[in-house]
Amino acid sequence: MKATIHGINFEPEFKPYIQKLIQLLTAEGFLVYVTSTFFRSLQKLGIPYDSLLLISDKSQLTEMDFVISVGGDGTLLDAVCLVGPHETPIMGINTGRLGFLATIAKDDIAQAVQTLVSKTYDLEERSLVHLDSDTELFDGLNFGLNEFTIHKRDTSSMITVHTYIDGAYLNSYWADGLIISTPTGSTGYSLSCGGPLISPSAKNFVITPVSPHNLNVRPMVVSDDTEISFKIEGRSEKFLVSLDSRSTPIDASVALKIKKEKFVAKLVKCHTHSFYDTLRQKLSWGFDMRN
């Protein structure tokens, strides 16, 4: 089997865990590849890499059985961009606090590798958001796992986002911005702006305003079979649009449309983990300070 490891910078204390991951994969007969960013991290930490192969082109990911993301949720989002339409299964190993996407703790690396070998895992298909625009944005990487966001720049005054669903007028949001979230992204920026939690398998988008001027405006859940388009107005000539952690400035003349991507992100989930377990732990459900 073949596996590619992806990661971006590590603290020195994580060095033994990375060494353990590479050793276990090699011992189980994996051909271990690494991305360029992970390779640079190995060099900084002084970890031997003679037995490793370097991914020189994204097309090589079609040959992989797995991509292993080592880091936090942001690193896994980056791995989704790398994999793109290849739909190579991604496993997330968390180097810090519990994540919603990278849920495997560093102390469970041995169990995680054995899960891959024994194939005792589930593949969760996560829908992606796709951006159509009349100007190329994000260097052609026009998809995201979490959300698409329109936002004002810096400390400029609020903007108005005229929003349409399948061409029908929905609302004009007077706000700092507007988020179009996937079910996966419902635990991210949308949640912090008052959006609902949605099961990852749901077939929906969430439209969540950021600091709306009209207090009677609320987040809205719509089918992900719809197309959502926008017209932006504001005192500033430039606005920010983002896909997950990638952002770029645009002006109001750029036509924007959001729909569901044709391909999905496939996340490896161990049988011992579930989305609902993560919710309870991450959000401290059931925890009472009085106890």
Rank of each mutant, 00 (worst) to 15 (best):
E237H: 14
G167S: 04
Q19N: 04
L240Y: 12
L279Q: 01
A112Y: 12
E87F: 07
I258K: 10
I150A: 02
Q281W: 01
I150M: 04
G177F: 02
D73K: 12
G140S: 04
A110P: 12
V32Q: 09
N146I: 08
Y276Q: 06
E136N: 15
S133P: 05
F39E: 12
I90C: 11
V241H: 05
S229C: 03
K262N: 15
T37A: 14
L215N: 02
M64C: 14
Y189P: 05
P200D: 07
L267E: 03
L52N: 04
M91E: 12
T120E: 13
T226H: 15
S181R: 10
K282V: 01
K262W: 14
D154P: 02
L21S: 03
R235K: 14
A27G: 15
V67R: 08
K44Q: 11
V83L: 03
L170Q: 05
L256M: 07
Q43H: 06
L77Q: 01
N291Q: 11
I68G: 06
S56E: 13
T95Y: 00
S223H: 07
L54H: 06
N214S: 13
N94K: 05
G84W: 06
D288S: 10
K2E: 14
L279N: 01
D244W: 10
R290G: 01
Y169Q: 01
I198S: 02
P200I: 07
S127L: 13
T187M: 11
R153L: 13
Y276D: 02
N216T: 14
D251L: 11
A3V: 15
S201I: 03
Y189A: 03
D50H: 10
V117I: 10
D251G: 11
E87W: 07
Q60N: 13
L131E: 12
A252N: 12
R246N: 07
G286L: 00
L243D: 08
V241L: 08
D277E: 14
L77S: 01
L240H: 06
E28N: 15
I250L: 04
I22R: 02
D225W: 11
I18S: 03
V206F: 01
F205N: 08
K259S: 14
E136A: 15
K257W: 03
L215C: 06
K238C: 05
I228N: 11
A255R: 14
I90N: 08
T184I: 11
K260F: 11
G72H: 09
S69E: 09
S201C: 03
S59A: 15
F239M: 08
I8W: 14
S199Q: 10
S36G: 06
G96C: 05
Y169E: 01
S41M: 08
V113K: 13
R280C: 13
A112I: 12
P16N: 00
H162C: 00
H6G: 04
T75P: 02
E261D: 15
R97I: 00
S36Y: 14
S223R: 04
T37W: 05
L82V: 05
M158Q: 03
A175Q: 00
K15I: 00
D78V: 01
D73H: 08
I55F: 09
Y173Q: 00
F66L: 03
S157G: 06
S236Q: 10
V161Q: 01
S41Y: 02
F30Q: 02
